[in-house]
């Protein structure tokens, strides 16, 4: 059995960096496309509602790992040479856009109908109605669920290890193989995930309680 020293910890931190980066890219990319999905999902046109419902259905109905594989090998099949990082980032963006789109669809619909009516009566067009009136309120409503999903996404990045992306879990695996101390190494890896995710969950449920109180 080898020792867990400074080098190993440094290596873990490198892995953590990629985990965090992947989560951030997935969350931002997913956020941008997610808004689009949510708007299309709540549009007046039935076609766009149906298409986006299908998109959301596919990503919610299949395992994230499967999605990673499909994008990873699918992109290669298209003849485009991309590294693991790009492929994984695309997969997480698609995945996050479906889930965030659905969360925000629900939040948009949860904004009282009177808000849309008041905006309409004032003559505000769709763009301003959404940007100024509906989305700020929907975002607030969605915050607990959005943070909950972010936590899922951070933990989900560990699956990227299976397509060879070297992030926190993959680094743990490598160190474990070198040192023969799987329990200790994965204990540390788990603790790192926990230190990031638990405060986020805590903030999310705190917001939820505060909003429940405000709604009474």
């Amino acid at each position: 059995m080898g020792p867990i020293g400074e080098d190993e910890l440094f290596f873990l931190m490198q892995g953590l960096k990629w985990t965090v980066l992947l989560a951030i890219v997935g969350f931002i990319g997913g956020g941008i496309f997610g808004i689009l999905i949510a708007l299309l999902r709540t549009s007046k046109k039935k076609v766009t509602r149906t298409i986006t419902a299908g998109y959301i259905g596919i990503f919610q109905g299949t395992p994230l790992l499967m999605q990673l594989f499909v994008v990873y090998y699918g992109v290669a099949l298209l003849g485009v040479e991309v590294n693991a990082w790009i492929a994984v980032a695309i997969a997480f963006t698609l995945h996050a856009s479906a889930f965030l789109g659905e969360i925000w669809r629900g939040s948009i619909e949860a904004v009282p109908k009177g808000q849309t009516e008041a905006a309409n009566a004032l003559g505000l067009h769709y763009g301003s109605r959404m940007k100024d009136v509906i989305l700020p309120q929907a975002l607030k409503i969605s915050l607990p669920a959005t943070i909950g999903f972010l936590v899922q996404l951070i933990k989900g990045t560990s699956l990227a290890a299976l397509v060879g992306f070297i992030e926190l879990t993959r680094v743990g695996q490598i160190i474990s193989n070198q040192t023969y101390r799987p329990l200790l190494v994965f204990g540390i890896v788990g603790a790192i995930y926990f230190i990031i995710c638990w405060p986020l969950s805590h903030v999310g449920s705190g917001l939820e309680k505060r909003m429940a109180k405000a709604a009474r």
């Binding site: 009177g114 808000q115 009516e117 008041a118 309409n120 100024d132 700020p136 309120q137």
Partner: peptide, 16 residues
């Protein structure tokens, strides 16, 4: 809508 203003039973002010 530019010529017509409306006031609702439930106010419908923008809360944010």
């Amino acid at each position: 809508r530019r010529e017509v203003g409306m006031v609702f039973q439930s106010f419908n002010l923008f809360p944010h």
